[in-house]
Simulated assay, not measured.
Amino acid sequence: MSVATRAALLPGTDLGRDSTERGQFRARELSATTVLITAVGEIDAANSGELLRFVEKLLADYDQLVLDLSQLGFFATDGYSALHSIDTRCKRRGIDWVVVPGAEVMRVLRVCDPEGLLNTAGNIVSAVAALARGPHTHLQLARAVK
């Protein structure tokens, strides 16, 4: 799968940044229910846990997550472990999410996720559109009923 041209960031509220030795993470609120988290630089054993913690601290406030990894220059299998953990935590909380992979992430996903179980999109706009279409989890529907 080839990655389409990167979309410009959508207007939103800047939720902050976190830098590591190898990478930088930033978050923007796209809507009251959707957060965009972007990673730039590298994801490897040294900072994959920091990416996971950065995502984790924002999950409680949103129903949808777009994780933009299209600007990474390096993505190790430790990064896939972080993605798997994010997937598990999102499923538990009923959060719909999509990964926007770049070439480095796709290289690892071809090996670690050959069935394509992680939801991916070619760019940010496509990811937001996919979230708007669903799928919506049972937990989210239960939250709406309460």
Rank of each mutant, 00 (worst) to 15 (best):
M1N: 07
S2V: 12
S2H: 08
A8E: 15
L9K: 10
P11T: 03
G12W: 02
L15N: 09
L15T: 12
D18L: 14
S19L: 07
T20Q: 00
T20W: 01
R22G: 09
R22Y: 09
R28F: 09
E29R: 10
T33D: 08
T34D: 09
L36H: 13
I37N: 04
T38Q: 13
T38I: 10
T38V: 09
T38R: 12
A39V: 07
V40Y: 10
G41I: 01
A45D: 14
A45F: 04
A46Q: 08
A46N: 04
S48M: 11
S48L: 06
G49D: 13
F54D: 04
F54Y: 10
L65C: 06
L65I: 06
V66A: 03
L67S: 10
D68A: 11
D68G: 10
L69R: 08
L69H: 06
S70N: 11
S70G: 13
F74L: 12
T77D: 12
T77S: 15
Y80S: 07
A82P: 04
A82F: 04
L83Y: 11
H84M: 06
H84D: 05
S85P: 00
I86P: 08
T88Q: 03
C90R: 06
C90Y: 00
C90D: 07
R93P: 02
I95M: 00
P101S: 12
A103T: 14
E104L: 13
M106F: 08
L109S: 06
R110Q: 15
V111M: 07
D113M: 05
G116P: 07
L117R: 15
N119E: 11
V125T: 14
V125Q: 08
S126R: 15
A127W: 00
A129P: 00
A130K: 13
G134L: 05
H138D: 15
